[in-house]
Design a protein around this nucleic acid. Sequence first.
DNA 1: TGTTGCTATGTCATAGTTTAATGCGTGATT
DNA 2: AATCACGCATTAAACTATGACATAGCAACA
Lengths: 242, 242
Amino acid sequence: MTTSCRNCPLRRRALFDPIESDELDFMQRFKSGELSVDADTLLMMEGSNSPQLFTVLSGMGLRYKTLPNGRRQVVNFVFPGDFLGLQAGVMNEMKHSVEATTSMTLCVFNRSELWNLFKNHPGRAYDLVWLASLEEHFLGDALTAVGQRDALERISWSFHRIYIRMTELGLVTGQGCQLPYRQQDLADALGLSLVHTNKTLKKLRDMQVASWNEGRLTVSDLDRLAELAMVDDHHVETRPLI
Amino acid sequence: MTTSCRNCPLRRRALFDPIESDELDFMQRFKSGELSVDADTLLMMEGSNSPQLFTVLSGMGLRYKTLPNGRRQVVNFVFPGDFLGLQAGVMNEMKHSVEATTSMTLCVFNRSELWNLFKNHPGRAYDLVWLASLEEHFLGDALTAVGQRDALERISWSFHRIYIRMTELGLVTGQGCQLPYRQQDLADALGLSLVHTNKTLKKLRDMQVASWNEGRLTVSDLDRLAELAMVDDHHVETRPLI
DNA sequence: TGTTGCTATGTCATAGTTTAATGCGTGATT
DNA sequence: AATCACGCATTAAACTATGACATAGCAACA
């Protein structure tokens, strides 16, 4: 039994822009089904095409690139509301892989319907550009983090970013949220070694700012975390949900 | 006297996708003028809005972000054919600054016309998503370079990337091309210190692979450069020109 | 009870940073 | 035309944040 777009639990969140009723009907027709996958499933592979586009309904994942020498760059963590496969949608080739970290449920759209979207639903096309721009913005920030911040700042930055996003999704309970990744994933996202990531996490824990144990991130001092992360822009922006 | 879209010197390059005649007419109407700026002009500022969108006709520039502590991340080098201001176009705010490094000429489009583009020219809207995806792809690659490669590999990667792009633009003469940036710009792009960038450039020069002097990049061994950069994908992709 | 995957921690090595000093060309000032 | 100031490239030396290697603990699982 699939979720109808009209009752989409994500869309209730203030994080996502409201949408007009007739557009919602279109989204419903655009949606070709729902997919549930187990943890560790490879959803899309770098270099290959993808006949489908997804919106994440629940669960978490990873986007990453692999280098010829075997090193891996985690490009992004994937959360509910994220749209997957746009690159393949327009360029016919994924430039990174996407993997499920937990079990996930995904809204499935047919790539062949994409042109119809552009032709008859300019508002949705606009939203796609918006989403792509958001991604561009995020990657610019990530590049800045890896290029200009030291280890403690980088980890603080990523925790802050994740915590804010999880808050917007209503997934924060108490002072924390689930964060089901391995330390190696975070290390690969931030361009740090596993060992140094571990040591820096300990430092952050000892400083009583944030701790990450058994798949749960706990933030005890958000202001201090933001300060360490050198983020001053706490501005929450809404985003489209496709 | 402005260049007409029909005679656009860029569009002749095989790098850019061909476009249909009536769409070209629309582009001509969409274009509100042409702008020439001196070197070191700030074109867009991080955090502010921009009423205009640009396509670079000639000249080179930089996109960058600044951190509260004063450090700077160069997010991208700007070359002819690049489209500027899409972020502000959809999100009402630039997330990075754009600066002219040399004098530049720019095609100017009116942001207020953007909605018309989406509504009546789905092909152009599709191109915008394409361009945004290209940018996302580039930033993912850059993140991978900064996160996973050492100094020599990073510089090789950036030189390779630049050299290929300049080749596609027809701006390579002999074995080299103009590259009018400072070492500090490259350092800020790659997350390296100026001093180490300088030392690594010397190394690359001593290895007889590539040298960068007086604003000119010379590549004497492209294969070796690609090898050092760990790029195997020499595949040249065409892109839309807006 | 061994194996596997992940976290944790100590020690040592090193790639890269910081600071500082030098030189060189260019444009401004007298 | 001489001098100065400034921006940029270059190089050397001292320092340090981070990486590499090694080892151990612990939980899940066959």
